[in-house]
Lab assay of single mutants.
Amino acid sequence: GIDPFTGEAIAKFNFNGDTQVEMSFRKGERITLLRQVDENWYEGRIPGTSRQGIFPITYVDVIKRPL
């Protein structure tokens, strides 16, 4: 089901994660935001896939912030 505490964002740019914990994505992908890790990073996942990880806040347009 849908978790009411998650947020939502759209990727503004392609992001290629450097490490296992970073999640790569392509511009235009819809991302579920799980939490804000710190002032620069979100943790999120791509709905319908097993992809999950952290990524820079500046790479996405936030539609709804996670609670």
Score class of each variant (00 low, 15 high):
41 W>Q: 06
38 D>S: 10
11 A>C: 04
28 G>F: 05
24 S>D: 08
12 K>V: 09
33 L>T: 02
49 T>F: 03
36 Q>H: 07
19 T>A: 11
21 V>W: 15
20 Q>E: 14
40 N>G: 11
61 D>C: 15
12 K>P: 00
58 T>L: 10
39 E>V: 11
55 F>M: 02
17 G>T: 06
19 T>G: 13
67 L>V: 15
33 L>K: 02
9 A>W: 04
55 F>A: 00
36 Q>T: 06
47 P>N: 10
1 G>K: 10
17 G>R: 05
36 Q>E: 11
8 E>L: 14
59 Y>E: 04
49 T>S: 09
66 P>F: 05
59 Y>P: 00
59 Y>A: 12
3 D>N: 10
6 T>S: 11
37 V>H: 06
35 R>D: 04
33 L>Q: 03
64 K>V: 06
27 K>W: 05
23 M>E: 01
15 F>T: 01
61 D>P: 00
24 S>V: 03
35 R>Q: 09
59 Y>C: 14
36 Q>N: 06
60 V>S: 01
65 R>L: 15
18 D>R: 12
42 Y>S: 03
46 I>E: 01
50 S>W: 08
19 T>E: 11
43 E>L: 14
62 V>S: 03
17 G>K: 05
57 I>V: 13
2 I>W: 13
67 L>M: 13
51 R>M: 04
54 I>A: 03
10 I>S: 03
43 E>R: 05
56 P>C: 03
12 K>C: 09
58 T>K: 10
41 W>G: 02
42 Y>H: 03
23 M>T: 02
12 K>S: 06
64 K>R: 07
27 K>T: 10
54 I>P: 01
36 Q>R: 08
66 P>V: 07
53 G>S: 01
12 K>H: 05
45 R>K: 12
53 G>P: 01
20 Q>L: 13
59 Y>H: 12
55 F>Y: 00
37 V>W: 08
17 G>H: 03
38 D>L: 06
32 T>Q: 11
30 R>K: 12
56 P>D: 04
37 V>T: 04
36 Q>C: 11
35 R>Y: 09
5 F>E: 11
53 G>M: 02
19 T>P: 07
17 G>E: 03
29 E>V: 03
3 D>F: 10
47 P>W: 08
23 M>Q: 01
8 E>C: 15
65 R>D: 15
59 Y>W: 06
43 E>M: 12
66 P>S: 09
38 D>E: 07
7 G>C: 15
16 N>R: 10
12 K>Y: 03
26 R>N: 11
66 P>D: 13
22 E>N: 06
11 A>N: 00
26 R>F: 13
38 D>P: 02
60 V>H: 00
61 D>S: 09
43 E>S: 07
29 E>S: 03
53 G>C: 02
21 V>Q: 13
11 A>E: 00
37 V>L: 13
34 L>P: 00
30 R>N: 07
54 I>Q: 06
53 G>L: 02
36 Q>V: 08
52 Q>C: 13
16 N>V: 15
8 E>S: 11
54 I>C: 12
2 I>T: 14
44 G>D: 00
61 D>I: 15
29 E>M: 04
23 M>N: 01
63 I>A: 05
12 K>M: 09
